[in-house]
Design a protein around this nucleic acid. Sequence first.
DNA 1: CTGGATCCGTGATGATACTG
DNA 2: CAGTATCATCACGGATCCAG
Lengths: 110, 110
Amino acid sequence: MEKSQKIIFASDENCPVRRSLNLLGGKWTLLILFQINERIIRYGELKRAIPGISEKMLIQELNFLVEHKFVSKKAYPEIPPRVEYSLTKLGLKTLPIADTLATFGLESLT
Amino acid sequence: MEKSQKIIFASDENCPVRRSLNLLGGKWTLLILFQINERIIRYGELKRAIPGISEKMLIQELNFLVEHKFVSKKAYPEIPPRVEYSLTKLGLKTLPIADTLATFGLESLT
DNA sequence: CTGGATCCGTGATGATACTG
DNA sequence: CAGTATCATCACGGATCCAG
């Protein structure tokens, strides 16, 4: 497996903006969290909800988010497979960030 | 000149989170805006305020931000040169985003 | 002091085909 | 359906030199 691609810099010390950005600053990260939102959503649904993302990036981000406890994953041993993703308590706390981005996008961008 | 490295995707259509992320999703973008904040700040000060950033990236981001009307730049024809940066009205509207990131960093990260 | 310009490595990102 | 594997590409970003 390709190794985790998001690097945590030790030198970020104590700037809270930087600490948040290190975890959530990925190109798709906040968008994925925002799309999951308060739903329990399947992989395929999520993929359709985010047009343009490649499968690789979606899986990679989801694994990252699960690993860092933003997202919880539940797999059902069925045929065909079913996997459901939802936000953890920590993940829910990131929603205000995406909300602020959405508000800005709506109010201030053409 | 190296061509502008931040690419605006046409396919983002109407998701406001994505529109915001396209402009502000750069590695240093929000951090720079946050550091300028409500100040009028010189280039050298700003550089010192953001340890770790290379001059190239700082200039590149500042040019991008000026170009997109988030930041205004005032150069004084003096020797030695003096250049002051500050947020435009639009730039000020991005501060809530950085604030939310800061809040999350303070409250929810180790 | 405030930049501009170029070289260049590396990791991040993406397209596509494949598997259980 | 939910991923994996492989391969190609591109943006990020450091180093360095230069200029007004």
